[in-house]
């Protein structure tokens, strides 16, 4: 593991919101997807998780959110701590209640539900009253005005960008402290990607929501993140502040496995 400058974002070092220590993840008890990943996310931080296809980004996120269980995979070594408490092996729906929400790769909106029903589903976790639910949904429409115009459209019929916005909006309605975003830029036009990342940054500033973002789009994600990790073959290859990673020109080497 190559470590760059010694003090990446001081907050994370003092009291991490999320601390992943040397986890190993197996699928169906035979396929090793993550060999040795350690990372931390401080409160209110945006952290980028970079790496090529198959580097273990998605599996790492699933291990954190508990969705590995739904894929019949297990965290066989290491530990995952949220505010100091171990959360490894806890089911995803219970972790959502504790403040971790996962926006899956490929968006995964509820296609047959309308845009607004999708957002409503996001609010159920906190059991809000009718008024409070409406207010929460209005807030999301404020961030993503396009969603308001599509509110009665089945989510499956909206565009890729709108689905990504919907998936993020729905996740935010669970009132998370940490949002795990898996490839938010996938299949989207650059201008939409930029829009989405700007909203993420705005949300991060106004609510202090922390984000851990798995991305292949290095440039955009590092411009908006505070720190970054580069995964290679299921291990952390580099850990550094975002601007240092951006300055370093040879990330492509790791992507290409050179």
């Amino acid at each position: 593991m190559t470590k760059f400058s010694s003090t990446p974002a001081v907050v994370a070092a003092i009291s991490p919101l999320l601390e992943v220590t040397a986890i190993e993840v197996f699928y169906e008890s035979s396929i090793l997807a993550v060999a040795d990943v350690s990372l931390r996310v401080g409160p209110g931080e945006i952290v980028a998780l970079l790496g090529a296809n198959g580097a273990g980004k998605s599996t790492t996120l699933k291990a954190i959110s508990g969705l590995v269980l739904a894929d019949r995979a297990v965290v066989s070594r290491g530990d995952i701590r949220l505010r100091g408490e171990s959360v490894a092996g806890i089911a995803a729906n219970l972790l959502a209640a504790r403040g971790i929400v996962h926006v899956l790769e490929g968006r995964h909106v509820f296609g047959h539900l309308t845009v607004e029903e999708n957002l409503r589903a996001g609010t159920f976790l906190r059991r809000p009253g009718r008024r409070e639910m409406e207010r929460g949904i209005e807030e999301i429409y404020g961030y993503f005005p396009r969603l308001r115009t599509k509110r009665s459209t089945p989510a499956g019929l909206t565009s890729g960008g709108e689905q990504q916005m919907l998936a993020i909006g729905r996740a935010l309605l669970t009132r998370p402290e940490l949002v795990l975003l898996d490839e938010p830029s996938m299949g989207l036009a650059p201008i939409i990607v930029e829009e989405i990342f700007e909203i993420i940054t705005a949300l991060n500033r106004s609510n202090g929501t922390a984000f851990l973002i798995a991305e292949q789009n290095v440039a955009v994600s590092l411009r908006h993140a505070h720190r970054g990790y580069v995964l290679d073959n299921g291990r952390v290859a580099i850990e550094a502040n975002a601007d240092e990673l951006l300055a370093r020109g040879n990330l492509a080497d790791i992507y290409l496995g050179v």
């Binding site: 959110s65 508990g66 969705l67 739904a70 089911a91 995803a92 729906n93 219970l94 959502a96 209640a97 929400v101 996962h102 926006v103 899956l104 995964h108 909106v109 509820f110 296609g111 047959h112 539900l113 029903e117 999708n118 409503r120 589903a121 996001g122 159920f124 976790l125 998936a167 729905r170 996740a171 309605l173 669970t174």
Partner: peptide, 18 residues
């Protein structure tokens, strides 16, 4: 709505705490 959400996408439903 939760029921239809689960029918549409089990994992996404889990991820938002259903």
């Amino acid at each position: 709505i939760s029921l239809r959400a689960v029918a549409d996408d089990t994992r996404a439903a889990l991820s938002i705490g259903i």
